[in-house]
Structure formats: structure tokens, C-alpha cells
Nucleic acid binder design. Structure first.
Length: 524
RNA sequence: GGGCCUGUAGCUCAGUGGUAGAGCAUCGGCCUUUUAAGCCGUUGGCCGCGGGUUCGAGCCCCGCCGGGCCCA
């Protein structure tokens, strides 16, 4: 932005002046710190000698002395600098300070007249000159001038968001800790973390539209993976009985408050366990992660009344718009999908046993039916509309229709249904698990049915993967598997209401065609 | 794709048809314990872009481009 140039130019001039004074901040490589800001404040000891470094958040110059608040990211502490203490050169350098610069100080702790724990600076060293103004929030007469409120700018320039907004910083740090706690949970249980190809000839394991790119060397179209499933099961076929992967998957679809085109998926597979055991693992994982990251299994979240649709008002009238406490220390609710539909969508089990009657029922409850060409699709729509929004507390919904579950074992009691569950929290899907098909004949039939759907125009139908079938034919043990959206999980555990709040760099529309990020003030 | 809201100084925002504003930030002064300090002065705008209505548009109308929320 051209408007920035003058501000930036001023700072460049200050940098030049610093160099004239014999101090080029960019030549410094290291600075020894003895304490963090938090340590100094918590374990305050008058007169204690310390060394500290951080970013300047505020700056008040008063003739021959001055104050600055310096933050190490987690906390900040006030520094008091006097000309007669630090010497003429350092004082000149201090006068060239801007908010946003990094500085190092040594000195001793003291309490100011007004009672603030501070550092009395004896040596002052500029460590970095910030050339861009920092939109730090400011408070004046009770009015808060929030530094960085523009949502778009916050996501595009996340580093500014991390510097200026403590809440954002906490949420994102917690999200990273959640990922790492998930790893520890699975590692502790003897799972092996693996890595599988991101570029795939057949993007399977889910029903979604992939991104397409090219292998130059083979002159081949390849797709970015939409799930981790098929490769992980091939590893199970290779007799590694407990595996997981945490990685990015890519779906070429819409962007909204619960979808990002690329997101972090965890999938774990374990041989010889059934669906019920997978549920317990999910419960224990959420509990363990919540305890490890937050020291508590309870999360208080505001349930947005706008999220409520249809029947939610009937079920949780009293909870509408009120904060809800989710307890991941308790077992999740278990709910049969068909029963839930009968109860909450106003349709009967019998109606949902055939395509034609299901379509009529769907019309009756007021949903458009033009695009529905199979029973499973109708069931999923009803579920989405009438059941999902009511699942606020952690709930497993069990038993999904066969048409939309091409990788899950058939339910021995009902050939139209599968051994599959999804976990929901705050009306959002957080996990999806199957008793995995290990019958290669059944699996091939399912793929063939999916190909038929693809023929009839469903681009998201599951593709047929011969290599995967070949692996199944080698013999896969009975296996339970589960996929968990780590970003969604982080939303649930941090109480965030938008997926973007738990992604460091959410996908954004470029500001100009062909431009990925704005590089303001840069001279190319 | 539809509805509602939104785009004004570096940041946060006011400004409902009549000379573009405030706070903070910037810059220049004064100030050796301040509380995002204070005082004096200063700088800074294609009011998102393009058309239209009008004597006159930041404001009204149309289109486009961003962004947000909701719905599909």
C-alpha cells in the first residue's frame, strides 16, 4: 500500500540512523535471556538481575527517561530506561524505538511508584527494527480501539493476529497442542504413525471432489488425496495391525464455517476390534486430549441460536442461545440413526425402507427431492436437516445406509445398513468410523455400485481402486477404523465457532487474480 | 445460487444531499517513575471500482469487485 510508504520510510531512516550510531540490529544473532516475562512477574524478586528480550508493545518517552512494555509472546513486562543509566549511545538508540521492534535488555527488577512490576534497564540492545506499523489495540478513556478487528486482514496476515490478539494466539496454540496430544495418545497405545502418498491416481476413501494436478515425468493426471483410508488399510493388509496418520487432505468444494478445502485428518485403524471398541477409543482420546491440553474435560461453548433449525427448539428449548457445557469426561450418547430419524424428522422406519416411500416422506417434511436418486441419499439429507443440529452433547450416531457407506461392513441384521457410526458435537460431525469391509467380493460389488452412481451423474461417488482390492484379496483381518477431523476436534475442545479460528492459514480468496498474498510495502 | 449487512486516514470508527471528521498511530517540540502518560504543534483520504440522478453525491439509484452472517 502506497499509504504505508511514508511510515515505512520513516522507519528505514531510523534504521539508517541506528547504523550510523554503530548498531545494526540485523547483524545481531543471539541474545541470552534469563527469564520469561511470566517468570519475572510470577516469581518477582526486587533487585533481581535479569536479561530479557521481546517485542515492544507500547512506548512512552519522557525527556531523559522512558517506558516500554516488552512482550515475549506469552506475557509482557514494563521496562524503564534512563539516559544516565544506559549511556548516550544506547539512549539515542532507545529514542529511535518503534512499537513492534524487538529489543533485549539487562537490568534488575523493581516496582514503580504506581506499583507495577518492571525492569530497571541497565543495558539496552535493539535486536530487530520493525519496518511495518503494528496494529496493536489501544485503550483510552474506557474506549477500546481494537487493533486488528478486520476478519479478512486477520486471516491474511496471521502473524499480526498472533501478535495483537491474545485470544487468537491461545486458541491456535491450543490447537497445535491438541494435535500433539492426539499423537501421544495413539503412540502410547502402540499405534504406528505412517505417511502415505498425497498425490494419488485414484483418490478414494471418501466421497468428495478431488483437486487434479499432473505428473510431468509420466504425463499423467493425478489427484490430491481426499482421505487417508485406502493406503492405511493396505498397511493393515501388510500385517501392521495398529496404524494412524495425521495429514492434510484436500477436497475441491465450498468454503464455510465448517469446511476448508484443505484440512487435517486423523485416521487410525486397528485390527481385530469392533465398532463398539472404536467408540471407546474415540471417547478416551477426547478425554485424554482435553485433560492434557486444558486440564479439564469440560468445555463451555456458546451455542449460537442461529445454528438451531427445525426440531432443535423442541428438544433443547432451554438451551437456546445459552452457553452449554460439554463434558468429554463422560461417555458419549449412543443413538441409533433410524430411531433418531423417527423421533426427530417425523418419518417412520417403514417409509425409509424403500426409495419411493422415503422420497414421499421427504416431500412431506418439506425438503426438496429433485436431486435424490437413492435411498441412502435421502436418509443422509433427513439426518443432516433434522438430527445433526440436535446433537449438541457428544453423541455417536450408529447405523448408516449402504449407498453412502461403500467401505463399511454390512449390518448382519439389515443388509441395507452398515456397521458405521459418526460422532457429533455441537451439531457438527467430528468423526466417522466403520467396521471395515474385509470381504474383497463385497468390496468390489460396492465399488461397482458406486461406479453406477458415477455413471448417473454423481461426481462424488467412490472410485474403484484395483490396487486396494488386490490388497484385500490378500486377506485383511477384521478391522475397526476411524477418521477424525482434527480441525473440528480443535473447534469442539477450544469452543471456537469458526473452523478458520483453529487454522493458522485458512484458505482465502486471492486479493487480486493470480496473487496469493498481498505484499504491502514490499519493493518486490 | 438467494437474503441481510458491510467497504471512509496506518488501526478502530463517526459522518442520511451542501467545505471529508475523531481517537490512537506518525512526524516536530517540552518532560528522569509513566499506566497503552500528559501538554503544544504537525502530517496523513481516487470515501472499494465504474456508471447514473442532481446545481451539488461519502450519503440516493444501477452494475462490478472484496468481506461478514444466514439460507440453499
Amino acid at each position: 500500500m502506497t499509504e504505508d510508504l511514508s511510515l515505512r520510510d520513516v522507519r528505514l531512516q531510523k534504521l539508517e540512523r541506528m547504523r550510523e550510531l554503530g548498531h545494526d540490529p540485523f547483524r545481531i544473532e543471539r541474545f541470552d535471556r534469563t527469564h520469561t516475562a511470566k517468570q519475572m512477574l510470577d516469581e518477582f524478586e526486587e533487585g533481581k538481575k535479569i536479561k530479557f528480550a521481546g517485542r515492544v508493545h507500547s512506548y512512552r518517552l519522557m525527556g531523559k527517561a522512558g517506558f516500554a512494555h516488552v512482550s515475549d509472546g506469552d506475557d509482557k513486562i514494563q521496562c524503564y530506561v534512563r539516559m544516565d543509566q544506559v549511556g548516550d549511545t544506547a539512549w539515542e538508540l532507545f529514542k529511535l524505538l518503534d512499537i513492534g521492534d524487538h529489543v533485549g535488555v539487562s537490568g534488575y527488577l523493581f516496582v514503580t511508584k504506581t506499583g507495577e512490576k518492571s525492569i530497571h534497564v541497565e543495558e539496552y540492545v535493539p535486536l530487530t527494527k520493525s519496518l511495518q506499523p503494528l496494529p496493536l489495540g489501544k485503550e483510552k478513556d474506557g474506549h477500546v480501539f481494537y487493533g486488528l478487528a478486520d476478519v479478512d486482514l486477520r486471516y491474511r496476515h496471521r502473524h499480526l493476529d498472533l501478535i495483537c490478539n491474545q485470544e487468537v494466539r491461545r486458541t491456535l496454540i491450543n490447537r497445535m497442542k491438541i494435535t500433539s496430544a492426539v499423537r501421544r495418545f495413539l503412540d502410547r497405545r502402540g499405534y504406528l504413525e505412517v505417511e502415505t502418498p498425497i498425490l494419488q491416481l485414484v483418490a478414494g476413501g471418501a466421497m468428495a471432489t478431488p483437486f487434479v494436478t499432473k505428473y510431468k515425468a509420466y504425463d499423467l493426471d493425478v489427484k490430491l488425496r481426499i482421505s487417508l483410508e485406502l493406503y492405511l488399510k493396505r498397511i493393515i493388509c501388510g500385517d501392521i495391525p495398529k496404524v494412524y496418520e495425521i495429514g492434510r487432505v484436500f477436497r475441491n468444494e465450498g468454503v464455510d464455517n465448517r469446511h476448508n478445502p484443505e484440512f487435517t485428518l486423523l485416521e487410525f485403524y486397528e485390527a481385530y476390534i469392533n465398532l463398539e471398541e472404536v467408540m471407546v477409543i474415540v471417547e478416551e482420546m477426547f478425554k485424554s486430549v482435553a485433560l492434557e491440553v486444558f486440564g479439564d474435560t469440560k468445555v463451555s461453548v456458546a451455542v449460537d441460536p442461529n445454528e438451531e433449525v427445525a426440531d432443535r427448539s423442541k428438544h433443547d428449548e432451554e438451551a437456546k442461545g445459552e452457553p452449554v457445557v460439554l463434558d468429554f469426561g463422560k461417555p458419549w450418547h449412543r443413538l441409533d440413526l433410524m430411531s433418531a430419524l423417527e423421533e426427530r424428522a417425523g418419518v417412520t422406519r417403514e417409509e425409509l425402507s424403500e426409495y419411493e416411500s422415503a422420497k414421499k416422506a421427504m416431500e412431506r417434511v418439506g425438503l426438496p427431492t429433485e436431486k435424490e436418486n437413492n435411498l441412502g441419499g435421502i436418509i443422509e439429507k433427513l439426518l443432516e436437516k433434522f438430527v445433526e443440529p440436535t446433537l449438541i452433547e457428544p453423541t455417536f450416531l450408529v447405523g448408516y445406509p449402504i449407498e453412502t457407506s461403500p467401505l463399511a461392513k454390512k449390518d448382519p441384521n439389515n443388509p441395507k445398513m452398515t456397521r458405521r457410526f459418526e460422532g457429533y458435537v455441537r451439531g457438527r460431525e467430528v468423526c466417522n468410523a466403520f467396521s471395515e469391509i474385509n470381504d474383497p467380493i463385497d468390496q468390489r460389488e460396492r465399488f461397482v455400485q458406486q461406479m453406477a452412481q458415477r455413471e448417473s451423474g454423481n461426481d462424488e461417488a467412490h472410485p474403484l481402486d484395483e490396487e486396494f482390492l488386490f490388497a484385500l484379496e490378500g486377506g485383511m483381518p477384521p478391522t475397526g477404523g476411524c477418521g477424525i477431523g482434527i480441525d473440528r476436534m480443535a473447534m469442539m475442545l477450544t469452543g471456537a465457532s469458526h473452523l478458520r479460528e483453529v487454522l493458522l492459514f485458512p484458505t482465502m480468496k486471492p486479493t487480486k487474480p493470480g496473487e496469493e498474498t498481498a505484499t504491502e510495502g514490499a519493493e518486490a
